[in-house]
Design a protein around this nucleic acid. Structure first.
Lengths: 121, 121
DNA sequence: CCGTATCCGATCCGATACTG
DNA sequence: CAGTATCGGATCGGATACGG
C-alpha cells in the first residue's frame, strides 16, 4: 500500500488505517499480548496467511503495530500493538460492544455463547 | 446491501457497519444535530450524492441512523444518529484523535489549521 | 430538495503455489 | 515458522442521467 500525503481530513486517514476485512479483528486479537503470525492465524477464523501478512504490514506502515524477531531457531516473530495501536484498540472495543448489541437484537447470540462473550438483556 | 445473519464474531458486523469510504465521515458530520441531505453533501468534500445516499441507507439498515420527513414544501428530510449511532460516534472520535496524531507526526497540519481543528505538540 | 439506475474502471480478497 | 507472487472473480465507488 502506498502511503498518501494528500489527506483532506483526519478521518480519511482513519479509513485508510482500518479499512479491509480483517484489520479490526487483527488488532483486537493483539489486545493482551504480543503474538506470532501462526497464533494470529489460528485465532482468526477464515483468514488466509496472505491477507494476514498484508494487513499486518499496512498496520505497521501506519504505526499501529510493530514486530520483533526473537532470536534462535525455529524462527519466531512477535507482533504487538504500539501505543497508537492501543488507542485505536480502545475505539474498536467500543465498536465491538455495538456489534454485540446488534447481535442480541437480532437473536444471533449463539456465537456469543459459543465464544464465551458476555452480554446482557 | 443484503443483511447477513451468518456472522462469526461481533467485529465482523462492525466491519459491515463502518466499511466504505465515507461512513465514518458521515457519522461524524451528524455529531451535533440532525442534518439534511444537502447539508451533508456540502459539508463532506468530494462525496457524490449517490454515495451519500447509499451509505446513509446502509447506516439506517444497521440502526445507526434514522430519518424523518419534515412536513411542508419544499421537501426536507432530517437525518440523525440513533442511540446506537452515538455510541459508534464515540469510537470514531477516538479514532479521529489518532488520525490527527498521525497528521502531526507527518507534518500534514496545514489541513488541520485550515479546518480549525486543534492539536498539540 | 430527495432519491434511483446504469455503466465501467479500480480495488479487494481468496486460492494457490513457491522461497528462505 | 515467516514471507512473497500471481491470477481471477467479486465488490466498490465515480460519473452521469433521470424521476418524484
Amino acid at each position: 500500500m502506498k502511503i498518501r500525503n494528500d489527506y483532506t481530513c483526519p478521518l480519511e486517514i482513519v479509513h485508510d488505517i482500518i479499512k479491509g476485512k480483517w484489520k479490526t479483528i487483527i488488532i483486537f486479537q493483539m489486545r493482551s499480548a504480543s503474538v506470532s503470525l501462526s497464533d494470529l492465524e489460528k485465532s482468526i477464523t477464515g483468514i488466509s496467511q496472505k491477507m494476514l501478512l498484508q494487513q499486518l504490514n499496512e498496520l505497521r506502515q501506519f504505526g499501529l503495530v510493530d514486530k520483533e524477531n526473537a532470536p534462535g531457531y525455529p524462527l519466531h516473530v512477535d507482533y504487538y500493538l504500539t501505543e497508537r495501536g492501543q488507542r485505536i484498540l480502545k475505539a474498536i472495543e467500543i465498536m465491538q460492544e455495538v456489534g454485540i448489541d446488534y447481535m442480541v437484537e437480532h437473536q444471533l447470540t449463539d456465537i456469543l455463547d459459543q465464544k464465551g462473550i458476555c452480554y446482557r438483556k
